[in-house]
Computed example of a mutant assay.
Amino acid sequence: MAGTFELFADEDSRIRFRLVAPDGTVLAVSGQYRDKDQAAAAIKDVRECAGTGLIRDLAPAPGPAKARASRRPHQVRPFMPNKEKSLGAA
């Protein structure tokens, strides 16, 4: 499924666009444009080259491997204001 380009006005009242994945994740945000026509032209350019664009790695080479502390995902528990409605052990 394709993403969506959204046009919006930023805090400087300049036009920008963002590319949003179907799940709502913002994948990219553009620079500022004077008007919607310029932003639309930039979206057209992105559509033309994004599918065939190569990756250029400008990031620094990784240093020595560091041991990372394992992180457990946070456990989400429902809020239960009445103790007698709780399903867990006391």
Rank of each mutant, 00 (worst) to 15 (best):
G31Y: 03
A21R: 13
D10W: 02
A50C: 05
Q75S: 14
Q32H: 09
A69R: 13
F8L: 06
P22I: 07
K44M: 11
D35E: 07
F8S: 06
I43R: 08
R72S: 15
A89P: 09
P60C: 01
E6T: 07
A40P: 00
D37V: 15
Y33W: 12
P81R: 02
G24Y: 00
R34C: 04
P60N: 03
Q38R: 11
A42C: 05
P22F: 05
S86M: 10
D57R: 12
A2W: 04
R56A: 12
A42F: 00
T52Q: 13
P22G: 08
E84L: 07
D12L: 02
L87M: 07
K44N: 14
E48H: 08
A61D: 12
S70P: 10
R71H: 11
R34Y: 04
A61K: 12
L27W: 02
D23L: 08
A2R: 11
Q75P: 02
R47C: 08
K36S: 15
G53N: 07
S70Y: 10
L54S: 11
E11H: 10
A59C: 09
R47T: 09
R16F: 03
A89N: 08
M1E: 13
N82A: 12
R16W: 02
S13K: 04
R47G: 01
R71D: 10
L7H: 10
H74Q: 14
A69H: 09
P22A: 09
I15Q: 03
L19T: 03
P62S: 03
A39N: 03
F17P: 02
G63N: 08
V20Q: 06
V20L: 00
K83N: 08
A9L: 05
C49F: 12
Q38I: 03
P78A: 14
R16K: 14
F5A: 07
P22T: 09
S70C: 10
A90W: 03
A41M: 10
K44G: 12
S30E: 11
A65Y: 11
A69W: 01
L87I: 08
A89Y: 09
A9Y: 10
V26N: 08
S30N: 05
G3D: 05
V76D: 08
K85N: 10
P62F: 00
E11C: 01
G63C: 06
H74R: 14
K36A: 15
A2T: 07
D45S: 15
R77K: 11
L87T: 08
R56Y: 09
V46E: 00
P62V: 00
L54G: 07
F17H: 06
L54D: 11
A41S: 14
Q75T: 15
G31R: 13
V76A: 05
V29F: 01
A59G: 06
A65W: 08
G63S: 12
D45M: 13
L19R: 09
A39I: 00
K85M: 04
E6N: 12
V76E: 07
V76G: 04
A50F: 05
A21T: 06
A40N: 15
G63M: 09
A61G: 04
R72T: 15
A50R: 02
D37H: 14
L27F: 00
R72Y: 05
A39S: 05
R14Y: 02
Q32S: 15
V46S: 00
E48A: 15
A61W: 04
I55N: 07
F5L: 00
K36I: 14
K44C: 10
A9F: 06
M80K: 07
K44S: 15
F79D: 12
